[in-house]
Design a binder for these strands. Structure first.
Lengths: 126, 126
DNA sequence: CTGAATCCACGACGATACTG
DNA sequence: CAGTATCGTCGTGGATTCAG
């Protein structure tokens, strides 16, 4: 790793950029993680995640669906039932995300501590 | 792992949320990755990353510094020289991020393909 | 239950110009 | 070279309301 040459390592067409930008919002990673246990209903995700609005959940799921990470299954029942499920591609993203959450569990304390010991929103040009 | 119980798995105080939101912007992960080779100067990062503005770079570095992931070293020289470096805490985040970029390199093709086969911004209420 | 549509606030982001 | 300030734009995200 760490083997990008000098001159143009992070070009816009770098595949890493796509993934980073795919997760670069408040809910995408959380929603993916919420789907990691199997098919889940819309309402279930709302409860499961906690704090997300229906609008953002739907919007996030739509994007993930467009990216081929999530599949949607609507059942013509009464009341309506819609289930979301990770595609194999989406499921393969769970592992990287999980690596991230594991880091979080081990280092959240240190990060919070650093935030606490840096209470000065003061610039360096002080 | 993957064993969050039903009822409240993703509470706001979950450490994973902090990390996800820390990376939930366009540049944080990229900047961290750009620092993974060792101390780098401001201007070098601009060239290295490509596409980021000085403002966003400084802003991102400031936040990472506040979170204890990056350290800043200013040298009183002429012309001024400022180097940024990952702290041990920050360095420990490179691995999870690298896992993500590896996934990207292997699956970016599939994602782009899915995006291509989903040209319909049409709702499901079709 | 699901989700679309609207209104609105806020912050991210970029471009530029200016300071040290 | 490094960084700030300002401005304008646009997307994100929340609350609410309407529809199937």
């Amino acid at each position: 790793m760490s083997g990008f040459g000098p001159g143009g390592p992070f070009l816009a067409d770098c595949p890493a950029r796509l993934t980073v930008e795919l997760l670069a919002d408040k809910w995408t990673a959380v929603v993916l993680y919420g789907l990691s246990r199997g098919p889940v209903r819309h309402g279930e995700l709302i409860e499961l995640i906690g704090g997300i609005s229906r609008k953002m959940l739907t919007q996030t799921l739509r994007r993930l669906e467009a990216h081929g990470l999530v599949s949607r299954h609507a059942y013509a029942e009464v009341p309506p039932r819609v289930e979301y499920e990770l595609t194999p591609l989406g499921a393969s993203l769970i592992d990287p995300i999980h690596t991230l959450t594991e880091w979080a569990r081990e280092n959240a304390d240190a990060v919070l501590d650093a935030l606490d010991t840096t209470p000065e929103p003061n610039g360096h040009g002080d």
